[in-house]
């Protein structure tokens, strides 16, 4: 009786052991699943981002084209577009005599563009106030010219026929982005290239190039930002204006964006 009962117990125990053993796969998968969910792994073949070039950016492409065409022009060559349209590059005039006198609309456009620079953190407010004050003081006239690629040049002089240029600005007429700015003022104000240049990159939507760096070991170490991908250099400099032919001492601010290669700079 007692032996039979013990035997029954043992058989039941054996059956009870077989069931969980048979269910090993279930437990196995439950455990591996739990370990798998939420676990972060490195991707096997991570996606490598496209490397943009200067040509991928409209503004830089315009600038590059301008350099190339200007060089061809110099050799008297025709240029041809991808559409097969051939023609000459006509650069805009750079002296007031060859430029068109700007009306109030154009002057307002100039102010809006400059205000954009100020708002984007590129141009310090002090410089803008200084320029504004001197323009208003002199009631300085503004002239403009455009080249055949669509770059708009705006120049403001102290007076008609005056050689003293208060402001020289180049803007891509289609996107309204500033590619060069020259300001001459009686008083110098602070501008930090390390702040102004990245802000300008962003304003010109060139940050997609992703490799704007200070070109160490070059002349532009203090005042430049260079993109290897875009083959472009941005500079920001201040100094004493020795170009103007007026009696008093003037100070200048220069912001410049242009195609640039190391070979050339080297």
């Amino acid at each position: 009786m007692k032996r039979n009962r013990k035997r029954g117990w043992m058989l039941a125990l054996c059956a009870a052991a077989i069931v969980p053993l048979a269910a090993i796969p279930l437990g196995w998968f439950a455990l591996t699943d739990a370990a798998m969910v939420g676990q972060t792994h490195t991707q096997q073949t991570p996606y490598t981002s496209l490397v943009p070039t200067g040509d991928d950016y409209y503004l830089l492409r315009q600038l590059n084209t301008r350099v190339e065409l200007a060089w061809r022009n110099y050799n008297g060559q025709m240029y041809s577009t991808e559409d097969g349209v051939e023609g000459m590059y006509f650069s805009g005039a750079t002296y007031s005599g060859g430029m068109t006198y700007a009306d109030a609309d154009m002057q307002q456009y100039r102010d809006e563009v400059l205000q954009t620079l100020v708002d984007g953190g590129v141009l310090p407010q002090a410089w803008w106030d200084q320029v504004k004050e001197e323009i208003d003081y002199w009631a300085a006239p503004t002239y403009y010219s455009t080249d055949s690629l669509g770059f708009l040049r705006l120049k403001t002089y102290v007076g008609e026929n005056s050689q003293t240029c208060l402001l020289n600005m180049e803007v891509d007429s289609r996107t309204g982005k500033v590619v060069a700015l020259w300001i001459s003022a009686l008083q110098r104000h602070e501008i930090d290239p390390a702040v102004a240049l990245p802000a300008w990159v962003e304003l010109n939507e060139l940050d997609g190039l992703g490799d704007w760096t200070v070109p160490t070991g070059t002349d532009y170490e203090q005042s430049g930002l260079y993109s290897e991908n875009g083959q472009a250099l941005m500079t920001c400099a201040t100094g004493e204006d020795t170009f103007s032919s007026s009696g008093e001492t003037r100070q200048f601010l220069s912001l410049q964006l242009g195609p640039y290669t190391k070979e050339v700079s080297g």
């Binding site: 798998m36 969910v37 939420g38 676990q39 972060t40 792994h41 490195t42 991707q43 991570p46 996606y47 981002s49 496209l50 943009p52 997609g208 992703g210």
Partner: peptide
């Protein structure tokens, strides 16, 4: 550059992440 398996309701999803331009 990483991936993870996440649960949403009854289904499991593998999520990939990449920083773009």
């Amino acid at each position: 550059g990483q991936q993870a398996i996440l649960r949403s309701g009854d289904s499991l999803w593998r999520v990939y992440c990449t920083d773009l331009l």
